[in-house]
């Protein structure tokens, strides 16, 4: 379920500076693309299926930014909701082992449900479009956050827990002074993984009834057989993901500066 390979690529591509190899690889890809586009007939593919770089660039100019903003807002909103919900339940499960024993199997069950099923459930159960999209994202990302949080809380060293307990902290002090800072690196990793997952899920969720957003624009482009538009929107999606990743990396560098 966890898109680890994809996450790795994204994480390494998330910095501000691109290494020279990455630039060269991208240029090679562009050149190959352009060659393929000009020789589509030779390859036995209709010309519109591999639009030229120029054609894609023209489509890129016509990208409607309001759709980008709407989609990003949906993703961030849903991730924040998932995170808050997961944090509450994870803390509850951590503090009360019995709750964990009952709830954990259910969480695993939720994690095993395919994304497409969540989308179908959303259509069956809810009318409101925003609610449908939010539901799908929370259903997909919430359990991941929860499992990550719970396992990292359990991974906080007994040594540090005993140390702080010897000073008699209140429960809220325990979480603020020890648990939160101790699991912060894991939380940030969890955010990165969920972000790339959410960006990809939201586009599918937006196919269902939405009249805004990048997913909706992708489906419009497909209905109009505008392949260049499909490519343009895909590029924008990837760029948005990388930009958000870069923001997370900046945050990480700042809050984890104590690390060697």
């Amino acid at each position: 379920m966890r898109p680890s390979a994809a996450a790795e690529v994204v994480i390494s591509g998330g910095g501000w500076r691109l290494p020279r190899e990455a630039i060269i690889a991208l240029l090679v890809l562009l050149v190959l693309w352009e060659l393929a586009s000009r020789n589509a007939a030779v390859l036995g593919v209709p010309a519109f299926a591999i639009p030229s770089l120029e054609r894609i660039a023209k489509s890129l100019i016509t990208v409607t930014w309001v759709d980008v903003v709407v989609t990003v807002a949906r993703v961030l909103g849903a991730l924040l909701c998932s995170f808050a919900l997961a944090a509450l339940i994870a803390i509850w499960m951590y503090c009360v082992p019995r709750v964990e024993r009952y709830a954990y199997p259910l969480v695993r069950l939720l994690m095993a449900v395919p994304v497409i099923s969540w989308i179908l459930f959303a259509v069956l159960w809810f009318k409101h479009v925003e609610f449908r999209i939010g539901f799908v994202l929370v259903a997909v990302c919430g359990p991941l956050f929860l499992v990550d949080m719970l396992s990292s809380m359990k991974g906080v060293s007994k040594e540090l827990r005993d140390m702080i307990h010897s000073f008699r902290p209140s429960t809220s002090q325990l979480f603020r002074k020890l648990m939160l800072p101790a699991i912060l690196p894991a939380l940030l990793t969890s955010w990165k993984i969920n972000l790339s997952l959410a960006i990809r899920v939201v586009t599918i969720a937006e196919l269902v009834g939405a009249v805004t957003g990048m997913g909706h624009q992708l489906s419009v482009a497909q209905e109009l057989f505008s392949v260049a538009d499909v490519f343009a929107w895909t590029l924008v999606l990837v760029a948005v993901l990388f930009a958000l990743e870069a923001v997370l990396n900046q945050i990480e560098a700042r809050v984890l500066r104590w690390r060697v």
């Binding site: 040594e159 540090l160 005993d162 140390m163 010897s166 000073f167 020890l178 800072p181 101790a182 912060l184 984890l256 104590w258 690390r259």
Partner: peptide
């Protein structure tokens, strides 16, 4: 009560 343990048990982020 205050304790000194075998390992320093300092919080690495502080």
């Amino acid at each position: 009560i205050a304790t000194v343990f075998q390992q320093d048990r300092l919080m690495p982020w502080r």
